[in-house]
């Protein structure tokens, strides 16, 4: 890892405020997948659900050489695609 510089303090996951340095530490700790980084740092668990950070984390994983770039897969994406109000789900059957 590089010495701690300004670049290391950049937020990769802006929702949960997880820095580049923290992601690098998770990879050094053994994470080999985007999900592994999430479990160690909570990156990707916030409001945007990893839409912003998952590509950057994939890139960092492949650069670290933990596995071939083509095998660094995104973490599971699930419903909802955008934030949605609970009332909308409850009333769905009335449509």
């Amino acid at each position: 890892m590089s010495a701690c510089g300004a670049e290391d303090q950049v937020f990769v996951c802006r929702c949960e405020e997880i820095t580049r340095e923290e992601i690098a530490e998770a990879i050094a700790d053994g994470a080999t997948t985007v999900r592994g980084v999430k479990v160690r740092t909570e990156a990707g668990m916030g409001l945007c659900q990893g839409r912003g950070c998952r590509k950057i984390i994939q890139q960092m994983l492949s650069q670290a050489g933990v596995r071939p770039a083509a095998e660094v897969l995104p973490s599971t994406t699930r419903t909802p695609v955008r934030t949605a109000k609970i009332a909308e789900f409850i009333n769905e059957e009335d449509d």
Binding site: P80, T83, K85, I86, A87, F89, I90, E93
Partner: peptide, 27 residues
């Protein structure tokens, strides 16, 4: 969809204020 709806219907009956919250993820 059915599971999600039933959980939320149940939750909103017991705590009506939840209806106005936004959800970001289902596990």
């Amino acid at each position: 969809r059915e599971g999600i709806r039933e959980i939320l219907k149940n939750a909103a009956r017991l705590m009506p204020g939840l209806k106005n919250l936004n959800i970001i993820r289902i596990m």
